[in-house]
Design a protein around this nucleic acid. Sequence first.
DNA 1: AATTATTTGTGCGTATGTATC
DNA 2: GGATACATACGCACAAATAAT
Lengths: 214, 214
Amino acid sequence: MSTGWQEVQAEVLRRIQNREWPPGGLIPGEVALAREFGCARATVNRALQALADDGWLERRRRAGTRVALSPLRRAQMSVAVLRKEVEALGKTYGHRLLMRKVAGSLLCLQTLHEADGTPYGIEDREIDLTHIPAAGSADFTILSANEWLVQNAPFDHGNMSYMSEGATAFDARHLECEEATPLLVLYRETFSEAGRITRVRLAHAPGHVVRLQI
Amino acid sequence: MSTGWQEVQAEVLRRIQNREWPPGGLIPGEVALAREFGCARATVNRALQALADDGWLERRRRAGTRVALSPLRRAQMSVAVLRKEVEALGKTYGHRLLMRKVAGSLLCLQTLHEADGTPYGIEDREIDLTHIPAAGSADFTILSANEWLVQNAPFDHGNMSYMSEGATAFDARHLECEEATPLLVLYRETFSEAGRITRVRLAHAPGHVVRLQI
DNA sequence: AATTATTTGTGCGTATGTATC
DNA sequence: GGATACATACGCACAAATAAT
């Protein structure tokens, strides 16, 4: 057994997956494992730490390290830059600013996103100009608001929701589908310390799929 | 400045978010930061490592550490155990096995999931008995197939897709909605080394929302 | 209820490896 | 090849949490 923490991690993971160490079971302490693997305790610690971060182990001082009861697997989803999403499909991205108006401190935008010239999604967005004043003078016909904000308005936290909705008349007109066609719709809000930066509703074209690896 | 790696991490993250260290920019080396923070280089290393894991930094030997160009924020989504999902809403979970049949080496199951007695989702699943023979004799009326598999069939990898579909006649009957009502539908496949363990289609009740924090 | 023993958490200093400029 | 910066190892020490007594 060589002495890298990644190798220790791999071996421990193997034992978990092979049920040599069953879910809920206590595994040997760090010193014992270090002895077994012929490495320093810090190396074992690094490996177990990483496995705990990934949800395979649950560690508590004095209580020891247990194999997680339900090794919850997680999928990661990034906050999409639609241009990259489209280009990843091998298609040409385009977008058109359909509407821009200011209502009080809110900048309201409607943008149609296209892939190879066909509608990809229709976006309805509000940006708070008190928090992002630069947005008032940005030219969203060049860089879409979606991409401009990712680059220029770093956020603290936010939330996303996916829902299934029937196409509204507005959706149907721009996505070139029948009204009430089932659409995958994304809502997203992002916040800085000061408050909400932007809120967006993005209705994807019919048949759109959100894929995740787990 | 105290000397914990978490504090170093917090301070570095603050500088990234405040643009004191702009995207794409090179940040000071580990030794310099260790000097500044008055701690060991290993402590700085731990902090930067963690930030790199979270996508804030990109590190390359000899090239130094840079602030990620697009600090892509990621949302995590766990592979749902529906019972926990329902209970997290403060509702009572229930499930009913509607159909069980064996076709060749495939075990086919249909399960209705309920929250407080109302339909939550309708699941259509195939399990490969050659890979998970124990599934053939499991009683899925007690523990749902969803939960049984999470506990008994650890998987290597898999994929999930979310789509928007109109309710089929089958969906509509069990979810107590009109046909063609827009539904959020989840498809998931999981694999072990040997091959595909299970494939599932889960149609959520109308109005279902998938929420993610970012 | 207080004490002790055990286990993980995390720090330090140091040494060496390794990729890359 | 040499210099540089990160990657990761080692051994040690002490802190913090908590199970066991």
